[in-house]
Design a protein around this nucleic acid. Structure first.
Lengths: 131, 131
DNA sequence: GCGTGATTACTCGGATACAAGATGTCCGAGTTTGAGCGG
DNA sequence: CCGCTCAAACTCGGACATCTTGTATCCGAGTAATCACGC
């Protein structure tokens, strides 16, 4: 029960883009050096972020990844869902009639956390802390 | 980012004990049959619950696992922590000065969820829904 | 100076390798109950 | 009926086996900018 490293990287990339280059595309190489991660692995996460519509990609020379217009409305939850998927945190594997009360409780708890994460925008922390 | 099956099993065991046998020890065999899990695997989780002090074990014939006196104060979070460990859900692997703002946000979100889970007692759902 | 082609700097996707953790099994050791048996 | 012994029913712990998932690397294909070169 942990968030993956990939999520960590993705969040930091988003923060970096917002605080350092909100308008220009940045190559994977640059981002990977900044975070101390291999560029090939980082590109996997960036692909997911692109697929989720959180950032855009510019191919070819001088290309890279860049923020889109409404980047200041992206929440922590958006990034986490893009990387980790949107599946629920808890699945009751038993078949004891529908509506497992235990699953209900855990999913409610999950909603509490997601509520908090969707209120927090990446741009908020990017402003105060240039990663 | 999911809770393990083990946590699922543990929660159901606790619910079962509270609703069916609050005072007598129940063997692993019985519990495992009830849940459709192998008894040897289930015993691993029960050991963890014992170590965490959530239930007691009675060895020897007619032995098994049983609830302790204050079982109605056990929360979902207690069981989850016993199985999954108490480590934080998110660890920033980067070394960019202390106090990563991103980690701060995610940990706050985690606290939201844990707050909810520590308010919910197992006995609450055991009363309404005999698993 | 101007098109045209080659080179370069990128993204993108698939295939693969590796390690760790979750899941599940097997077995041996210790512990208590209870039944059997001899006096 | 009493006490002893022994088997059965348990927990407990460690050592495995397996499977999935996260992490990471490599490579080939496509794409766009830029540079070189010939006219």
């Amino acid at each position: 029960m942990k968030f993956s490293q990939a999520t960590d990287y993705a969040l930091h990339v988003m923060t970096y883009l917002m605080s350092h280059a909100p308008d220009k595309p940045v190559g994977v190489q640059t981002l990977a050096d900044r975070l101390g991660v291999s560029q090939t692995y980082l590109s996997k996460m960036l692909s997911k972020l692109v697929k989720a519509g959180l950032i855009g990609s510019v191919s070819g020379a001088n290309g890279g990844y860049r923020l889109k217009a409404n980047y200041d409305r992206i929440s922590f939850l958006d990034v986490i869902h893009a990387i980790e998927g949107t599946a629920s945190i808890f699945e009751c594997g038993l078949n004891h009639g529908e509506g497992c009360a235990i699953q209900q409780v855990v999913m409610d708890a999950e909603r509490q956390m997601e509520q908090y994460l969707s209120d927090k925008k990446i741009a908020d922390v990017a402003r105060q802390h240039t990663s």
